[in-house]
Nucleic acid binder design. Structure first.
Lengths: 228, 228
DNA sequence: TCAAAAGTGTTCACCGTACACCCATGG
DNA sequence: CCATGGGTGTACGGTGAACACTTTTGA
């Protein structure tokens, strides 16, 4: 009844919504397209699926090619298939979103490709349906931030409570009460307070914390669920 | 730098995880495959993407072809792309899940295609990565059931509180306290109690309710969020 | 009259939220 | 000594969970 040969094959692409945090604002990394169509306009980082890789690998490859980064948190978002989403040829695109901590990787992010960070609310118009992808990624990020400790992917290894709170405020788009926020975080019991202080932000200095991934994993395997 | 012609096209399929509820158990609809490979084994309902339709339309078409049903709740789940997931040819598949109320549509569901309902925990082995798809769909269904009133998609228009509770117990995989459940549902204030009673389940009879979609939509537009 | 399912409220513990003052330090 | 950001605790109300008895009616 169904035969593989009866069906047209089509191009499969991946597009990456790359989030970063500069201790102030949530940002996305965009590139200026250097090929047609829509050459010169801003776009998500994308590429086509190769036959010897799966989609996750393709997304990792694309991200690596355009930023030089390895070991980045990525997650499949959803697949976009509007018939005319790409004017040149029928292309279905699988969107991924990635979280990068900008501060530790500034050097590695390759500016050769005209890549540039934009504040999430100051991003330029994007080609195709990329704006929709970003909007969906933003919603997903918000949900995830409340149910998984993904925030730490966006921060340097050592960070202050203030940084963490500012990040969550940027992601959630609302201000949070300092005491309640710290109480919640401490109740989770997945951070290590270091001896070290950040002396740049204030005269008193504020302690650096690190995310205790071991402890977190152990607690999860013990039935614990992160919930902010 | 990137050229559309440099890239191989591949087959794109959709596979549907179809959930139903028979007032007792949560079920999925499977078909016995009548073509190679894996002919004769159980499988999700699937088909290939046509060039003149998007993925949502393809999923709707596949579902309609194999069940005769229209206007079914469907949602894209995620995309599966392991290199060797289909032994015949590289195929990427986008999974959708659908919710059907069995009781009102028994007649329409076409048995010509060897389609059969299985209890979710008594389903046979499935081809390819379909088992993984079902597991993911189940997780998604659980999450959705708590945050959107999708349960009503699985029930007849008129249903009793008992039915509703049994459904939620089946979805969540745990028993619920009758009083707490009813209190919660009533607090949501999105059901209409009819005058009519179901006299089959007991001598006393139990009232039928209907989901008040108008009211629900109004409340949502007013900032209300469903939360069980 | 009895069996079987329907229907109905209250109490309590915990969690989330609101809220304000002192501390340490460098200039 | 003062200005700036860092750090800390409590009280209250609301929500979620535990829990048992009465009602109806057909057989």
């Amino acid at each position: 009844m169904d035969n593989y040969n009866d069906h047209k094959k089509i191009l499969l692409a991946v597009d990456c919504i790359i989030f970063g945090f500069d201790n102030q604002n949530l940002k996305i990394l965009l590139i200026k397209r250097n090929f047609e169509p829509e050459k010169g306009r801003w776009s998500l980082m994308g590429g086509f699926l190769h036959t010897d890789e799966n989609l996750d690998d393709a997304a990792i490859r694309v991200l690596n090619q355009l930023t030089g980064l390895h070991n980045i948190y990525m997650e499949q978002l959803r697949t976009y298939s509007a018939i005319d989403r790409d004017p040149v040829e029928r292309t279905v695109s699988v969107a991924y979103y990635a979280l990068i901590n900008i501060t530790e990787h500034t050097a590695e992010i390759n500016e050769n490709y005209s890549a540039k960070w934009f504040n999430i609310d100051e991003a330029p118009d994007l080609i195709f349906d990329h704006k929709l992808m970003v909007a969906n990624a933003m919603l997903r990020l918000r949900r995830r931030a409340l149910s998984k400790p993904i925030g730490f992917e966006l921060l340097p290894k050592k960070f202050t409570m203030k940084q963490l709170q500012t990040l969550y405020e940027a992601i959630l788009g609302e201000t949070l009460d300092k005491r309640n926020f710290i109480n919640k975080i401490n109740a989770l019991d997945i951070l290590l307070k270091t001896e070290e202080k950040d002396m740049n932000s204030s005269r008193k200095g504020s302690y650096f914390y690190t995310f205790d991934e071991e402890k977190y994993k152990f607690k999860v395997s013990d039935g614990f669920t992160f919930r902010l």
